[in-house]
Computed example of a mutant assay.
Amino acid sequence: MNMNIEPFGEAPQGVRLQKVLAAAGVASRRVVEQYIVEGRIRVNGVVVEELGRRIDPETDLVDVDGTAIQLDVSKRYVMLNKPTGVVSTMKDENGRPDLRRFTKDYEERLYNVGRLDAETSGLLILTNDGELAHVLAHPSFGVTKVYIAKVEGTVTAQVIQKLTTGFDLEDGFIKADKARLLDTSKGANPSSLVELTLHSGRNRIVRRMLAEVGHPVTELVRRQFGPLHLGTLPAGKSRELTKIERGALLTLARHDAPADATPGDAQEIE
C-alpha cells in the first residue's frame, strides 16, 4: 500500500478522500481507509491505492463497491408523484396548474427531469442537478420506465404479444420491453389494467401504442423510472431520495450517459 507521503514544503492539492467520503455520509474516516485497503473505492474509474489520496470533490467522480457517491451536498434529488391535471413545467404560459406548487418549500431551485403529460400521473424527478437532468432526459439515454395503464376493452394474450413483438407507428417501429395483463373488468364497459415497460422517450408513446392495438388509455401512471420506484407515495406528495436511491440514480447516469447529452434535449412526454 502506497502511503503517498507528501513532499515537505509542497502545498497539498485537493481534499483527502477519507474526509470527503465521511462528509458525504459513506462511513467514518477510519472505515473509509479500510475500504481503500480492500480496493473498494474508485476515483474516475481507477481503484484507489493510496491512503493519502486527495481529490477535487467538484470534478472527481467517486464510487464505492461500484455505486456512485454524491459528493456535492448542495445537490437535491426529489421524487414527486405528479397528480393528473398538472403540466410538467415550472411556469405554464396558459395559466394551468404547474410544478411550482411542489417546489416552493425547497430552498433550491428545482427542475423536472423529463415530462409527463397533464393527464398522466406518477413518478417525476425534481432536482437542481442540471447535468444529471439533461443526461437522464436525453432522447438517446433510454432509461427504463414502467407504466400501468387502464384501458378500454378486454386485453387478450394476443394483444400482449403484439405489444412486445412490436409494430410501426407514424414515427417508426416501436415495441415494449415487457408487457403483462394485470387485471380485467367485465360488464357493459369492460376495461383492463396493463403494465408496460419500455425505454423509449417518444412523445405520448404509451398512449399511442395502446391505441394502436385497439385499447385506448383512460388512466395512466408511471410507477418506475430507472432504479426508482414510486412505492406508496401518495399523489401530490414528494420526498427526497434516500442515499441508496441517489447512489443508484447517479450510477446509472454515469455508466450510460450519452456522449452528446446537452442542455435542452429533454423532450420526453408520456
Rank of each mutant, 00 (worst) to 15 (best):
D63N: 09
A188E: 12
V86H: 04
T232S: 12
G201H: 06
S121M: 03
P57N: 02
D92Q: 09
S192R: 08
T59W: 00
I244C: 02
D63R: 00
R96W: 03
E270R: 14
G114S: 09
A157D: 15
A118P: 02
D256P: 00
T144G: 07
T184Q: 14
V143Q: 10
K104M: 07
K75V: 06
T197R: 11
Y106R: 10
T59L: 03
D92V: 11
N81L: 04
A118L: 11
D56W: 08
V159I: 14
G264P: 09
V48D: 01
A253E: 00
N94K: 14
S74F: 00
I174F: 14
G153A: 08
L126H: 05
A248E: 15
V217H: 03
V135C: 03
G14K: 08
E119G: 05
L124Q: 03
T84S: 00
I36R: 05
L124Y: 02
P12L: 11
V64Q: 00
L230A: 09
H134L: 04
L228C: 07
G85K: 04
G214S: 14
V32T: 06
T165H: 14
H229F: 11
E195D: 07
G201D: 08
R254F: 04
L123C: 09
L71D: 01
E270F: 15
E49N: 03
F173D: 02
N203D: 10
E38H: 10
V15Q: 13
T59E: 06
F102G: 01
M90G: 02
R204V: 04
F8K: 15
D260I: 08
D60V: 12
S238V: 03
V135H: 02
L110A: 02
L136I: 15
M79P: 06
T120E: 06
R29V: 05
A266L: 04
D92Y: 08
G153T: 08
